[in-house]
Amino acid sequence: MAYAVPHPRLSVLSTSSLPQSAADHSSPTNSSTRFSLASAPSLSTTLVTSSKPAQRPNIYDRNLNKTRLTEVSASAFAFLFSEIVQYTQKCVSGINDLERRLNTLGYRIGTRVLELMLYRQESSSKAPKREIKLLPVLMLIHSQVWKAVFGKPADAIEKSVENADEYMIIDNDPPIERHISVPRDMSQLSCSSFTAGIVEAVLDGLGFPARVTAHNTPTTQHPTRTTILIKLEKMVLEREELLK
């Protein structure tokens, strides 16, 4: 049981609150346990007459490309994200802790974004490929990942002049922060730590481990401008040298 203990990234948020049994985890495609009506006898009398349980749509059997072009309500997401931040704020002691938690939540999304995005892009291509060089990977995040998650590419990508291992992705108006006003006493907080987590997961998944953080860098024109700072690990740069 080498994987008995989940990756620390995935275990930070307690799973004990999820009312799922171990059996559910081992067979995620078995929808009958999830949507079973037998366990809810009070509902079964009304529901069975209208639709049979066997005909219920199963999210795991659905074509992954079906929802590729559909959109999610920005308002619904804004309310959900607002609740996520409020809930997270109740569980933490400081701004750093809050950012770390948001980063962790984003990380869980990023792993899935990468998998789904690559499947949608590469599965139809005749010569599927995987990026192994740093710059194409950063461009992939700047355009493709941003498009898959936010529906638009990021606004800029920059290389740090001071440190060779630092890169920055800049978004002038991050959609997740559009309705958020951070109070003055927490002005250091950037809710885009969530986005930073997504970027970190994508980089990790492609084999470019890095520490990713988010920083507010407002300008008069773009008050919510945010910089996602990527600090690559040493081994990535060493490997880049070898690939040259």
């Binding site: 607002s82 931040v85 409020q86 309705h179 958020i180 006003s181 109070p183 809710c191 008050p223």
Partner: peptide
């Protein structure tokens, strides 16, 4: 609805101190 209710740092029914709403 946009700037106050979707802001995680606003407490419902409390005074509105949200920069985005002022703007």
């Amino acid at each position: 609805a946009d700037a106050v209710m979707k802001n995680p740092f606003h407490t419902p029914e409390m005074p509105i101190r949200t920069e985005g709403f002022d703007l």
